[in-house]
């Protein structure tokens, strides 16, 4: 299992445990976390699974592709250098402890 820490816009921390190989979006939706919506089901289309990745983890993620980069231009909450789509983050053992902060809104 991979542990992920998700911090709400108000600063509340939620710890979720997810199976290796699933995306962060799937793990969060599966855990009933309200701040990640993932309405398109992980097709990298709807942009409603936006997260800000904690600085310490940002460089450890595989780089984003062009499509994700373009989609992030249209997020409902401001894009920052820490912005990623959580449906594109596949949870692996070396991401154990990954920490992300939720944006104020997804749509």
């Amino acid at each position: 299992m991979v542990a992920v820490i998700v911090i709400s816009p108000e600063g509340a921390e939620t710890r979720i445990a997810a199976a290796e190989g699933v995306s962060l979006m799937q793990a969060a939706v599966g855990a009933g976390l309200a701040g990640i919506v993932g309405e398109c089901g992980g097709n990298a289309i709807c942009c409603t699974c936006h997260v800000y990745v904690n600085d310490a983890w940002l460089a450890r993620l595989p780089p984003m592709d062009e499509n994700e980069d373009e989609l992030l231009e249209g997020t409902a909450s401001d894009r920052t250098p820490a912005s990623r789509l959580s449906c594109q983050i596949k949870l692996t053992a070396d991401l154990d402890g990954l920490t992300v902060t939720l944006p104020p809104r997804q749509y």
């Binding site: 289309i45 373009e70 409902a76 749509y107």
Partner: peptide, 14 residues
């Protein structure tokens, strides 16, 4: 698709 993604993005919907 890239163009329509921009036209119909969450930011535009907001």
């Amino acid at each position: 698709r890239a163009v329509l993604n921009k036209a119909l993005s969450p930011a535009v919907m907001k």
